[in-house]
Design a protein around this nucleic acid. Structure first.
Lengths: 116, 116
DNA sequence: TAATCATGTAATTACATGGTTACTAATAAT
DNA sequence: ATTATTAGTAACCATGTAATTACATGATTA
């Protein structure tokens, strides 16, 4: 089962570009250390650590101690679980790929109009 | 294309139980009016309207004016687009369903331990 | 036209988030 | 043993979020 609280944590973890980029880093470089990871970003190491705490809280990042360092790993299982549940719950409501592309085009057009 | 900003909006829209429940309501009752929707919740009508604004900002809810009322509809296209992109980007990194179930069991166990 | 009803806006409040700097703790290296 | 390195904690600040109450707008209906 996946609780509402867990969903809150997973979705808000994903709702920040830096955190999504962290996941992407860990995808490409599994086992990265905290400091190494922090180098990839403009914000302070502390800010990155805060983001890590959010990701770990959501279960999206796991880590293993190794001396005075910590090795970090991405874990997509929580997303997978939400995905599995939603595929069932909303099966039949998903638009086809073409429909969603059409929606994207319309959204882009709307944004363009706003700009004038 | 789906921009980082759009992803931020979609994920933070989904990161609140009330908003997820709103989507669920609109799934079951498409064309619901604002006031009718608000009745389903404990919080004030204004709070529900704020949540609606967030969902509309993310493109997850659309609406059509009809006299003095507004009819609301769920739109899953933004989620679909993110899903399509991630399936590509992270294909190969998804754990099998069994693995994610195993993860869930471990998470539950960890939580139980903490409680003692 | 006046009364009513469905929405929407403004102002306010409490709390959460994302960031900073300064300091602490613990391991490794000289 | 001292020093440097890596990670974590504390305190703080600005901004954003989620909720509230009170008021405003705008369409129906009596």
């Amino acid at each position: 089962m996946v609780t509402n609280n867990e969903m809150d944590q997973v979705f808000s973890a994903l709702a920040h570009e830096t955190r999504r980029t962290i996941l992407d880093c860990l995808k490409h470089h599994p086992g990265l250390k905290v400091g190494e990871l922090a180098h990839h970003f403009d914000v302070s190491r502390i800010a990155v650590m805060n983001h890590l705490a959010v990701l770990e809280g959501a279960g999206l990042v796991t880590s293993m101690r190794e001396g005075r360092t910590r090795r970090l790993y991405m874990n997509l299982a929580p997303i997978q679980m939400i995905h599995d549940r939603w595929s069932d719950e909303y099966s039949g409501y998903w638009a086809g790929r073409m429909t969603s592309i059409k929606y994207a085009a319309e959204a882009a057009a709307r944004k363009k109009e706003k700009g004038t």
